[in-house]
Design a protein around this nucleic acid. Structure first.
Lengths: 99, 99
DNA sequence: TACGTAACTTTGCGCCACAAAGCTTCACCG
DNA sequence: CGGTGAAGCTTTGTGGCGCAAAGTTACGTA
């Protein structure tokens, strides 16, 4: 049986799942690029990133080259949690995918 | 890119995802069995099932052999929606699964 | 000095998951 | 018959959360 209680509640939300997927695919993302890519309001995006940060899943670095510029990245714990989440997805897919 | 907006909001919730997974794996489930399997309060379970029913994803048949007894099953539309959902999961898995 | 932009924070709204408790219908038992 | 218990469902209440819009702060530029 699949253990759905293992589905990390922090990751199992469309917006944050999309963020985690982007962060997992590239080592670093600037806030503006995330915002553009996700078509998300800045307030909403910041809130999701804060939730992920509080969970220890993402780190942030603030710079001031000209305009202020904040970059986000997955922590080791974040990557681990994401891979664990993906593993649950995989078990669902394997069970139900036709063919 | 993965289109997260395609993640069906009705299915993308732990409880209902678990229900859909069970219904997809066996043609018919009695209410009591679902409740036992999912360790969910009956009120909560009924609410989720109603949501799925309103979406046209599950059908229900009421019988009265001895005790009242309601059975639930996936509709064609429900199966289609679930497979579509699983397809999105698969794209996530394929993109991020190590190896 | 006025303006614009990045990155937040605050506020407010509406929805929803969840549990607990109540209701209704029926079968069984004295 | 009247009581008991179980199945299924509704109601009520609470807390949390996604989301947008507007306000805030800091800084760099015209």
């Amino acid at each position: 049986m699949i253990d759905f209680s293992q589905l990390d509640k922090v990751i199992h939300e469309k917006g944050r799942l999309a963020i985690m997927s982007l962060l997992a695919a590239r080592p670093e993302w600037r806030f503006q690029d995330l915002k553009t890519e996700l078509s998300m309001s800045d307030g909403n995006l910041v809130t999701h990133l804060r939730t992920l940060h509080k969970a220890g899943y993402v780190s942030l670095t603030k710079e001031h080259d000209g305009r202020p510029q904040t970059s986000y990245a997955l922590t080791d714990r974040g990557r681990e949690a994401f891979l664990g989440y993906v593993a649950v997805l995989e078990s669902i897919v394997l069970k139900h995918k036709p063919s």
